[in-house]
Design a protein around this nucleic acid. Structure first.
Lengths: 227, 227
DNA sequence: CGAATCCTTGAGTTCCCTCAAGAGAAGTGG
DNA sequence: CCACTTCTCTTGAGGGAACTCAAGGATTCG
């Protein structure tokens, strides 16, 4: 039961009985990936799903000419590729470790039995529903907002999810941020420079400080445009 | 039990016991909407989810200046707004009837009890998973493909889901198709004209005939560009 | 300290959006 | 059944946001 303590901490498994946690620990397969290592590729046969223990995993799509769109970044405690358990037998996107990461893998067949417990399936349903809402926002952003608006949304999201020192840590390379926002590094760089020039943000190395939150919010909502 | 027969036909409820179907029929609220009528708006308090009995429902997002992005079109047998049951208490998008439609509404509290049945929750999980895959494709398309590629994908999808007479029925106005593809009616019109000129498709009123499927497939995959 | 990667800035191009106006289709009422 | 309104669709002209290509500067890492 060497994984039991870590399983206790995974939000997806909250509300489950001690026995359920033990059963999960029993079927857990621990894996480790180096920075830059691929976990699976789109189309690979999928035999289970994952939970991040430590590190950072990116889920992304690739176009034939190599352009990438990040669908999601997952950190400690977050599950990914659950879809593989319930629909189809192949992964619908690529997964790669952005940092040295440890993950738990749960084989589908063994995990499926645990879904008989209503707490387990309700947790899963809630998790997938949140994922759906996130995707809906992403589609809205890609289709209805320009890059400055998407960037503003992301900065405000970071601001709300990190401590309120006002200093935002990106945690990812700007190239990766560009890919998350559905644009190119050059475009991102230019827009950051413009936001800086207009004193909406301050660029402090790899960190960003929000200087004018109201204006960023107007950008994020699409109410204003960046001049 | 006046809705029992229709409930039998809903894919989401396949594999359930007779008693479960009866229980579903008992809590079903039937509603009817005229063409153009709003079913709910983004942010409205959500107290349950829906299944389309007949007609066509569009789920969409709106930008402040009125531009719309369709997230999904749902026809007979398809559930929508399930997310409202599992995450949050407000609808994350708008819903409107594109045709005169009948829907079944299932109140969350009453429905929640039925989720104790593993068949029910597994069906739901499968349904949400498919929805996630669809959204992932949509994000990929919006971010990595140009409009001709997205249109080609849609035409090929129609071709695979309709009879193989080769004649595609759009079933929706071109304005709506533009909104589904994340573009403007003018752009769609121009691209259809170009595809026609290059003899990839033939325009027959509200219908479209595919003339050169291989070329469309290259467009859809991003391998080729439209000249 | 050197190699590799990441980031920034510039110049040019392209796709698509906006604005505008006319043609076509569909629904309404006399 | 035909005029009427209304909505949808098409085509044109112009402009703008973001992409591509290119090169120099900054950072990171071994």
């Amino acid at each position: 039961m060497k994984h039991l303590k870590q399983i206790d901490l995974i939000p997806l498994f909250q509300g489950l009985s001690r026995e359920q946690h033990q059963e999960l620990a029993r079927i857990t397969v621990e894996q480790e990936y180096d920075r830059g290592q691929t976990i699976f590729s789109e189309g690979d046969e999928a035999s289970g799903f994952y939970v991040v223990v430590s590190g950072l995993i990116k889920i992304y799509k690739l176009s034939p000419d190599g352009k990438e769109q990040i669908l999601h970044l997952f950190g400690p405690g977050e599950p990914f590729a659950e879809v593989a358990v319930f629909a189809g037998s192949s992964f619908p996107a690529h997964a790669l470790a952005l940092k040295k990461s440890r993950v738990f893998f749960f084989p589908r067949d063994l995990f499926a039995k645990l879904l008989a417990d209503p707490s387990m399936s309700m947790n899963m349903l809630a998790s997938l529903s949140l994922r759906l809402k996130h995707f809906a926002s992403m589609i809205e952003a890609l289709s209805l907002k320009e890059v400055p608006g998407r960037l503003a949304s992301y900065l405000l999201y970071l601001n709300s999810s990190q401590d309120d020192s006002g200093l935002l840590q990106l945690n990812i390379a700007k190239t990766q941020l560009a890919s998350l926002l559905g644009t190119m590094p050059e475009t991102l760089s230019r827009i950051l420079a413009r936001m800086h020039k207009q004193e909406m943000i301050r660029l402090e190395g790899a960190n960003i400080r929000i200087m004018d939150q109201p204006t960023l919010e107007k950008l994020a909502s699409g109410e204003n445009r960046l001049e």
